[in-house]
Design a protein around this nucleic acid. Sequence first.
DNA 1: AACCGCAACAACCGCAAAGGG
DNA 2: TCCCTTTGCGGTTGTTGCGGT
Length: 316
Amino acid sequence: MGCRSCDKPKMNYRKGLWSPEEDQRLRDYILKHGLGCWSAVPAKAGLQRNGKSCRLRWINYLRPGLKRGMFSQEEEDVVINLQAKLGNKWSQIAMHLPGRTDNEVKNYWNSYLKKRVMQLGSNSSSNPASKNASPELLTSMSATTELIMTSGGGGGGGGSTATSTHDHDANISSSGAISAAEPFVDQHEHQHHHQQQAKNYVFADWMPTAAATAAPGPESYSMSAHWPASTASSGNVTPSHGAFVGDQMSGSSYAALQHPHQQEHHHHHHHQHGSTAAVGAHAGAGGMVAGGGYFDLLNMGDIYGGFTTTNDDLLF
DNA sequence: AACCGCAACAACCGCAAAGGG
DNA sequence: TCCCTTTGCGGTTGTTGCGGT
Protein backbone atom coordinates (compact mmCIF):
# COMPACT_ATOMS: atom_id res chain seq x y z
CA MET A 1 0.00 0.00 0.00
CA GLY A 2 2.41 2.54 1.12
CA CYS A 3 3.07 4.84 -1.69
CA ARG A 4 6.34 6.35 -0.66
CA SER A 5 6.94 8.06 -3.88
CA CYS A 6 3.92 10.13 -3.30
CA ASP A 7 5.62 12.83 -1.37
CA LYS A 8 3.10 15.54 -1.42
CA PRO A 9 3.95 19.05 -0.63
CA LYS A 10 2.23 20.52 2.33
CA MET A 11 -0.43 22.71 0.99
CA ASN A 12 -3.72 24.17 1.80
CA TYR A 13 -6.20 21.87 0.26
CA ARG A 14 -9.33 23.19 -1.20
CA LYS A 15 -12.57 22.09 0.32
CA GLY A 16 -16.16 22.24 -0.58
CA LEU A 17 -17.89 21.55 -3.80
CA TRP A 18 -15.89 20.63 -6.80
CA SER A 19 -15.72 23.00 -9.67
CA PRO A 20 -16.16 21.80 -13.24
CA GLU A 21 -12.51 22.49 -13.83
CA GLU A 22 -11.47 20.35 -10.94
CA ASP A 23 -13.68 17.56 -12.08
CA GLN A 24 -12.23 17.72 -15.49
CA ARG A 25 -8.71 17.65 -14.21
CA LEU A 26 -9.40 14.68 -12.06
CA ARG A 27 -11.25 12.88 -14.76
CA ASP A 28 -8.58 13.52 -17.32
CA TYR A 29 -5.93 12.35 -14.97
CA ILE A 30 -7.67 9.14 -14.09
CA LEU A 31 -8.42 8.45 -17.69
CA LYS A 32 -4.82 8.87 -18.60
CA HIS A 33 -3.17 7.19 -15.69
CA GLY A 34 -5.75 4.95 -14.22
CA LEU A 35 -6.40 4.35 -10.60
CA GLY A 36 -3.38 4.29 -8.45
CA CYS A 37 -2.03 6.16 -5.52
CA TRP A 38 -4.68 8.63 -4.58
CA SER A 39 -2.37 10.66 -2.50
CA ALA A 40 -0.36 11.36 -5.60
CA VAL A 41 -3.29 12.30 -7.73
CA PRO A 42 -3.78 15.89 -6.60
CA ALA A 43 -0.25 16.91 -7.33
CA LYS A 44 -0.06 15.07 -10.58
CA ALA A 45 -3.46 16.22 -11.70
CA GLY A 46 -2.84 19.75 -10.65
CA LEU A 47 -5.51 19.80 -8.04
CA GLN A 48 -5.45 21.56 -4.74
CA ARG A 49 -7.33 18.78 -3.10
CA ASN A 50 -6.18 16.00 -0.94
CA GLY A 51 -6.17 12.50 -2.25
CA LYS A 52 -9.00 11.51 -0.08
CA SER A 53 -11.20 14.14 -1.57
CA CYS A 54 -10.21 13.12 -5.07
CA ARG A 55 -10.98 9.53 -4.37
CA LEU A 56 -14.35 10.37 -2.97
CA ARG A 57 -15.17 12.58 -5.86
CA TRP A 58 -14.24 9.92 -8.32
CA ILE A 59 -16.11 7.18 -6.57
CA ASN A 60 -19.22 9.09 -5.84
CA TYR A 61 -19.53 11.25 -8.85
CA LEU A 62 -17.13 10.88 -11.71
CA ARG A 63 -16.72 7.19 -11.98
CA PRO A 64 -18.45 5.71 -14.99
CA GLY A 65 -21.25 3.36 -14.29
CA LEU A 66 -22.97 5.52 -11.77
CA LYS A 67 -26.67 5.88 -11.80
CA ARG A 68 -28.39 8.96 -10.73
CA GLY A 69 -31.89 9.77 -9.84
CA MET A 70 -34.40 8.18 -7.64
CA PHE A 71 -34.24 4.65 -6.43
CA SER A 72 -36.50 2.12 -7.98
CA GLN A 73 -38.83 0.05 -5.91
CA GLU A 74 -36.52 -2.86 -6.32
CA GLU A 75 -33.57 -0.88 -5.15
CA GLU A 76 -35.54 0.37 -2.24
CA ASP A 77 -36.43 -3.14 -1.26
CA VAL A 78 -32.84 -4.15 -1.46
CA VAL A 79 -31.73 -1.32 0.74
CA ILE A 80 -34.42 -1.93 3.30
CA ASN A 81 -33.82 -5.60 3.52
CA LEU A 82 -30.10 -5.48 3.49
CA GLN A 83 -30.08 -2.74 6.05
CA ALA A 84 -32.20 -4.90 8.26
CA LYS A 85 -29.89 -7.76 7.67
CA LEU A 86 -26.50 -6.14 7.66
CA GLY A 87 -27.03 -2.95 9.52
CA ASN A 88 -25.47 0.23 8.26
CA LYS A 89 -23.00 -1.52 6.07
CA TRP A 90 -23.56 0.85 3.25
CA SER A 91 -20.72 -0.28 1.13
CA GLN A 92 -21.91 -3.83 1.33
CA ILE A 93 -25.43 -2.82 0.56
CA ALA A 94 -24.24 -0.74 -2.33
CA MET A 95 -22.53 -3.77 -3.74
CA HIS A 96 -25.95 -5.12 -4.48
CA LEU A 97 -27.04 -1.99 -6.25
CA PRO A 98 -25.13 -1.56 -9.46
CA GLY A 99 -24.33 2.01 -10.11
CA ARG A 100 -25.13 3.17 -6.61
CA THR A 101 -22.50 4.32 -4.25
CA ASP A 102 -22.43 3.70 -0.56
CA ASN A 103 -22.75 7.39 -0.03
CA GLU A 104 -25.83 7.53 -2.14
CA VAL A 105 -27.39 4.59 -0.40
CA LYS A 106 -26.54 6.04 2.94
CA ASN A 107 -28.02 9.39 2.05
CA TYR A 108 -31.12 7.79 0.70
CA TRP A 109 -31.55 5.80 3.83
CA ASN A 110 -30.94 8.67 6.17
CA SER A 111 -33.09 11.13 4.34
CA TYR A 112 -35.94 8.95 3.38
CA LEU A 113 -35.99 5.26 3.99
CA LYS A 114 -35.18 5.39 7.64
CA LYS A 115 -38.14 7.55 8.41
CA ARG A 116 -40.35 5.51 6.22
CA VAL A 117 -39.30 2.26 7.74
CA MET A 118 -39.67 3.67 11.20
CA GLN A 119 -43.12 4.93 10.44
CA LEU A 120 -44.18 1.68 8.97
CA GLY A 121 -42.59 -0.18 11.77
CA SER A 122 -44.60 1.68 14.34
CA ASN A 123 -47.77 1.46 12.35
CA SER A 124 -47.63 -2.17 11.61
CA SER A 125 -45.92 -3.74 14.51
CA SER A 126 -47.69 -6.97 13.87
CA ASN A 127 -46.01 -7.88 10.73
CA PRO A 128 -44.25 -11.15 11.06
CA ALA A 129 -43.07 -11.13 7.53
CA SER A 130 -40.39 -8.61 8.17
CA LYS A 131 -39.35 -6.73 11.17
CA ASN A 132 -38.65 -3.68 9.16
CA ALA A 133 -40.41 -3.82 5.90
CA SER A 134 -44.13 -3.44 5.75
CA PRO A 135 -46.43 -5.45 3.56
CA GLU A 136 -46.58 -2.46 1.35
CA LEU A 137 -42.89 -2.54 0.95
CA LEU A 138 -42.85 -6.20 0.47
CA THR A 139 -45.50 -6.39 -2.14
CA SER A 140 -43.03 -5.63 -4.78
CA MET A 141 -40.38 -7.75 -3.26
CA SER A 142 -38.91 -9.32 -6.25
CA ALA A 143 -37.02 -12.45 -6.89
CA THR A 144 -34.10 -10.16 -7.10
CA THR A 145 -34.38 -9.30 -3.50
CA GLU A 146 -34.88 -12.84 -2.51
CA LEU A 147 -31.83 -13.78 -4.38
CA ILE A 148 -29.87 -11.28 -2.45
CA MET A 149 -31.31 -12.29 0.82
CA THR A 150 -30.51 -15.86 0.29
CA SER A 151 -27.10 -15.34 -1.12
CA GLY A 152 -25.94 -12.87 1.43
CA GLY A 153 -24.76 -15.36 3.93
CA GLY A 154 -24.20 -14.63 7.56
CA GLY A 155 -27.17 -13.70 9.60
CA GLY A 156 -27.45 -11.19 12.30
CA GLY A 157 -29.52 -8.12 12.44
CA GLY A 158 -28.52 -4.55 12.49
CA GLY A 159 -25.34 -3.50 14.08
CA SER A 160 -23.31 -6.18 12.55
CA THR A 161 -19.76 -5.99 13.61
CA ALA A 162 -18.49 -7.74 10.59
CA THR A 163 -15.53 -6.05 9.15
CA SER A 164 -15.99 -5.09 5.59
CA THR A 165 -13.29 -6.38 3.41
CA HIS A 166 -14.61 -5.65 0.02
CA ASP A 167 -13.37 -3.11 -2.36
CA HIS A 168 -15.30 0.00 -1.80
CA ASP A 169 -15.35 0.73 -5.45
CA ALA A 170 -16.99 -2.46 -6.37
CA ASN A 171 -20.57 -1.46 -6.29
CA ILE A 172 -21.43 -4.10 -8.73
CA SER A 173 -21.41 -7.15 -6.67
CA SER A 174 -19.55 -10.11 -7.86
CA SER A 175 -22.74 -12.03 -7.64
CA GLY A 176 -24.36 -9.72 -10.09
CA ALA A 177 -27.28 -9.91 -7.81
CA ILE A 178 -29.45 -7.36 -9.39
CA SER A 179 -30.86 -7.98 -12.73
CA ALA A 180 -30.80 -4.47 -13.87
CA ALA A 181 -31.77 -4.53 -17.44
CA GLU A 182 -35.42 -3.70 -17.61
CA PRO A 183 -36.17 -1.98 -14.38
CA PHE A 184 -33.34 0.37 -14.92
CA VAL A 185 -34.64 1.94 -18.00
CA ASP A 186 -38.21 2.39 -17.11
CA GLN A 187 -39.61 5.49 -15.61
CA HIS A 188 -40.50 3.91 -12.37
CA GLU A 189 -43.39 5.74 -10.90
CA HIS A 190 -43.84 4.18 -7.55
CA GLN A 191 -45.22 6.39 -4.89
CA HIS A 192 -42.30 8.25 -3.63
CA HIS A 193 -42.59 10.71 -0.89
CA HIS A 194 -41.03 13.44 -2.87
CA GLN A 195 -42.04 12.26 -6.23
CA GLN A 196 -38.62 12.74 -7.53
CA GLN A 197 -37.87 12.95 -11.14
CA ALA A 198 -38.02 9.53 -12.59
CA LYS A 199 -34.65 8.09 -12.25
CA ASN A 200 -32.28 8.00 -15.07
CA TYR A 201 -29.29 5.92 -15.53
CA VAL A 202 -26.28 7.80 -16.45
CA PHE A 203 -23.12 5.96 -17.06
CA ALA A 204 -20.94 8.80 -16.18
CA ASP A 205 -22.79 11.96 -16.74
CA TRP A 206 -19.88 13.40 -18.54
CA MET A 207 -19.96 10.77 -21.16
CA PRO A 208 -21.50 11.96 -24.37
CA THR A 209 -24.17 9.79 -25.77
CA ALA A 210 -22.05 9.21 -28.78
CA ALA A 211 -19.53 7.53 -26.62
CA ALA A 212 -22.07 4.99 -25.64
CA THR A 213 -22.90 4.00 -29.12
CA ALA A 214 -20.19 4.99 -31.47
CA ALA A 215 -17.15 2.97 -31.93
CA PRO A 216 -14.12 5.07 -31.36
CA GLY A 217 -11.31 5.48 -33.67
CA PRO A 218 -8.29 3.33 -33.49
CA GLU A 219 -6.29 6.27 -32.33
CA SER A 220 -7.54 5.82 -28.84
CA TYR A 221 -4.87 5.31 -26.37
CA SER A 222 -4.48 1.93 -24.90
CA MET A 223 -6.64 1.49 -21.90
CA SER A 224 -5.24 -1.86 -21.10
CA ALA A 225 -1.95 -0.26 -20.47
CA HIS A 226 -3.34 1.60 -17.55
CA TRP A 227 -6.21 -0.30 -16.13
CA PRO A 228 -6.39 -3.27 -13.88
CA ALA A 229 -5.79 -6.66 -15.27
CA SER A 230 -9.45 -7.46 -15.11
CA THR A 231 -9.95 -4.80 -17.66
CA ALA A 232 -7.75 -6.36 -20.19
CA SER A 233 -9.19 -9.75 -19.61
CA SER A 234 -12.71 -8.60 -19.91
CA GLY A 235 -14.20 -9.34 -23.22
CA ASN A 236 -16.55 -6.48 -22.79
CA VAL A 237 -13.90 -3.90 -22.76
CA THR A 238 -14.85 -2.65 -26.09
CA PRO A 239 -13.73 0.03 -28.40
CA SER A 240 -16.16 2.39 -26.87
CA HIS A 241 -13.58 3.06 -24.26
CA GLY A 242 -11.67 5.10 -26.63
CA ALA A 243 -14.45 7.54 -26.72
CA PHE A 244 -13.65 8.46 -23.19
CA VAL A 245 -10.31 9.75 -24.00
CA GLY A 246 -9.70 13.38 -23.89
CA ASP A 247 -12.12 16.07 -23.06
CA GLN A 248 -15.44 14.46 -23.33
CA MET A 249 -17.31 17.02 -21.45
CA SER A 250 -19.96 18.88 -23.18
CA GLY A 251 -20.85 22.06 -21.50
CA SER A 252 -24.49 21.38 -21.07
CA SER A 253 -24.19 17.91 -19.82
CA TYR A 254 -21.52 18.85 -17.48
CA ALA A 255 -23.50 21.65 -16.03
CA ALA A 256 -26.15 19.16 -15.31
CA LEU A 257 -23.64 16.90 -13.82
CA GLN A 258 -22.19 19.32 -11.42
CA HIS A 259 -25.28 20.24 -9.53
CA PRO A 260 -28.26 18.42 -10.76
CA HIS A 261 -30.57 19.88 -8.23
CA GLN A 262 -29.55 23.33 -9.16
CA GLN A 263 -30.98 22.85 -12.54
CA GLU A 264 -34.50 22.97 -13.70
CA HIS A 265 -36.04 23.23 -10.37
CA HIS A 266 -38.40 25.64 -11.91
CA HIS A 267 -39.84 22.89 -13.99
CA HIS A 268 -41.03 20.88 -11.08
CA HIS A 269 -42.66 21.52 -7.84
CA HIS A 270 -40.77 18.90 -6.05
CA HIS A 271 -37.17 18.30 -5.55
CA GLN A 272 -35.68 16.90 -8.59
CA HIS A 273 -32.31 15.48 -8.12
CA GLY A 274 -32.12 13.52 -11.22
CA SER A 275 -30.92 15.93 -13.77
CA THR A 276 -33.38 16.37 -16.51
CA ALA A 277 -30.69 17.89 -18.58
CA ALA A 278 -28.61 14.86 -18.05
CA VAL A 279 -31.47 12.71 -19.09
CA GLY A 280 -31.81 14.61 -22.25
CA ALA A 281 -28.18 14.50 -22.97
CA HIS A 282 -27.43 11.02 -21.89
CA ALA A 283 -30.55 9.01 -21.75
CA GLY A 284 -29.02 6.86 -24.36
CA ALA A 285 -26.19 5.93 -22.15
CA GLY A 286 -28.35 3.89 -19.91
CA GLY A 287 -31.68 3.61 -21.52
CA MET A 288 -31.44 3.72 -25.23
CA VAL A 289 -28.37 1.68 -25.44
CA ALA A 290 -30.04 -1.60 -25.18
CA GLY A 291 -27.76 -4.52 -25.17
CA GLY A 292 -24.25 -3.93 -26.23
CA GLY A 293 -23.71 -0.36 -25.29
CA TYR A 294 -25.23 -0.91 -21.96
CA PHE A 295 -23.02 -3.81 -21.24
CA ASP A 296 -19.95 -2.11 -22.31
CA LEU A 297 -20.58 0.90 -20.24
CA LEU A 298 -21.39 -1.07 -17.23
CA ASN A 299 -18.18 -2.81 -17.60
CA MET A 300 -16.56 0.52 -17.71
CA GLY A 301 -17.69 0.80 -14.18
CA ASP A 302 -15.73 -2.32 -13.58
CA ILE A 303 -12.75 -0.90 -15.19
CA TYR A 304 -12.68 2.36 -13.46
CA GLY A 305 -13.64 0.95 -10.19
CA GLY A 306 -11.21 -1.85 -10.30
CA PHE A 307 -13.87 -4.46 -10.41
CA THR A 308 -13.00 -8.01 -10.76
CA THR A 309 -16.24 -9.26 -12.05
CA THR A 310 -16.40 -11.32 -15.12
CA ASN A 311 -18.76 -11.13 -17.96
CA ASP A 312 -20.75 -13.92 -16.52
CA ASP A 313 -21.29 -11.93 -13.44
CA LEU A 314 -23.07 -9.24 -15.27
CA LEU A 315 -26.51 -10.51 -15.81
CA PHE A 316 -27.96 -7.69 -17.73
C1' DA B 1 -40.71 39.75 -0.66
C1' DA B 2 -38.60 37.85 3.23
C1' DC B 3 -38.03 34.41 6.31
C1' DC B 4 -38.05 29.75 8.04
C1' DG B 5 -38.10 24.78 8.00
C1' DC B 6 -37.22 20.90 5.57
C1' DA B 7 -35.30 17.71 2.16
C1' DA B 8 -31.69 16.09 -0.67
C1' DC B 9 -27.19 15.24 -1.40
C1' DA B 10 -22.26 16.47 -1.71
C1' DA B 11 -18.44 16.50 0.95
C1' DC B 12 -15.79 16.31 5.25
C1' DC B 13 -14.03 14.05 9.39
C1' DG B 14 -12.34 10.54 12.24
C1' DC B 15 -11.30 5.99 12.85
C1' DA B 16 -9.69 1.45 11.65
C1' DA B 17 -7.72 -1.82 8.54
C1' DA B 18 -4.25 -2.94 5.23
C1' DG B 19 0.23 -3.18 3.83
C1' DG B 20 5.09 -1.77 2.85
C1' DG B 21 9.61 -0.55 4.84
C1' DT C 1 7.27 -6.21 15.33
C1' DC C 2 6.70 -1.51 14.96
C1' DC C 3 5.95 2.61 12.46
C1' DC C 4 4.07 5.09 8.94
C1' DT C 5 1.17 5.95 4.99
C1' DT C 6 -2.74 4.98 2.28
C1' DT C 7 -7.22 3.43 1.70
C1' DG C 8 -11.95 2.29 2.98
C1' DC C 9 -15.90 3.05 5.66
C1' DG C 10 -19.59 5.16 8.31
C1' DG C 11 -21.20 9.14 10.82
C1' DT C 12 -21.87 13.77 10.45
C1' DT C 13 -21.95 18.39 8.68
C1' DG C 14 -22.50 21.86 5.09
C1' DT C 15 -24.75 23.66 1.10
C1' DT C 16 -28.44 24.49 -1.81
C1' DG C 17 -33.05 25.13 -3.15
C1' DC C 18 -37.99 24.39 -2.58
C1' DG C 19 -42.40 25.05 -0.27
C1' DG C 20 -45.00 27.16 3.18
C1' DT C 21 -46.12 31.05 6.00
